Computed example of a mutant assay.
Amino acid sequence: MAPHQAQIELLSASQHGVKATAFEKKCVDFHWHFHPEVELVWIESGEGLLHAGQTLIPYEAGQLVLIGSNLPHAYGSAPTQRTGARWTVLHFRPSLWGAEFWKLPENSRILALLERAGRGYLYSNQVATEAAKYLAHIQNPTPGDMPLARLLNLLDLLARDNSGHQLNPQSISGGNIEIQDTRLQFVLSKLEQTSHEPGLTQAEAAQWLNMTPPAFCRYFKRLTGRKFQHHLNQLRISRACANLLSTEKSITEVAYESGFNNLSNFNRRFREFTNHTPRSYRRTKGGLIPD
């Protein structure tokens, strides 16, 4: 088997109606994968970037992520945030319950949610906190508790809520052969590690795969839906957003540590991706303001 091969992941949850597991590590290592199980992740502590389909977005403590069946995804802790991450993951495979079950009128809201889940959703605030309580009961059921009933209540909670941030405009499936390309995991993981280097170029990234820059450009756009430079800028700005909110570093420090060697270019790109200046983003999003 070739190294860095992105492939379907077999989960122990496939043997259960529902399974929730808590994890705690110093950091979350980037791992691009997909699976037929629907996934819910409650992020108790830690921050970094979430790749889901063709979307790249910062994640932080207190959020809940819904990943539909076969939606390729990966979480990665920010390089500067390696001091602790805690999260709970729930998996279940709707097909194990039977198609007729999901066609019941009582399940119409939940079925609609599961059909949308292939786009991916990010929840925060009250709904995420309420969902975390259900996850705790499913992970550690008390005598007489019914985890499957808790799951249905949890899914209905999400189905009734309209505050979730949709991650992709349409469902994306890892079943697509191009998404499973053996080299994509390596490229995305490598970019996670090197995006802060201001000298990183498309030509250098093309060398990782022994491709010419034009061929790499076409390859990357076909598999990710984004041009390489756009993805790199988005990755850098996402890192900058995390640093603006979690540190008291100056905007200049944040810009250079994110991979920009020109402050005016950083400001332009920041506004392009966030519709904010770095200063207004830090202030309106509740970031730490330096003295």
Rank of each mutant, 00 (worst) to 15 (best):
P79I: 01
I251M: 11
A255M: 04
T55I: 07
A13D: 02
R119K: 14
S238Y: 06
E257P: 00
V65D: 01
S195N: 10
R183E: 11
Y75N: 00
R150P: 02
G68A: 09
A149I: 11
E204P: 03
S77G: 03
A13R: 03
L148H: 11
G76Y: 06
C217V: 09
L50C: 01
G287W: 11
T129F: 13
K249E: 11
Y59S: 03
G98K: 04
L184M: 12
Q5V: 15
S171T: 13
K285N: 10
S69E: 14
R218K: 12
H51Y: 11
D291E: 11
S246P: 03
E9M: 13
A206C: 00
P278H: 05
T182P: 09
P147D: 01
I8S: 08
V187S: 02
S12F: 07
I177D: 06
P79W: 06
R222F: 13
E272L: 09
E44P: 04
Y134F: 15
N153M: 05
Y75P: 06
E60Q: 10
H51L: 13
V18F: 00
V254Y: 01
H33G: 03
I179K: 08
H35E: 08
A215T: 14
A159E: 05
N233S: 12
I138W: 04
F186T: 10
N162S: 13
Q54H: 14
L50D: 08
T55S: 13
N261I: 00
E115I: 07
R150M: 12
L49C: 15
E192T: 12
A99T: 14
L288D: 02
S264K: 14
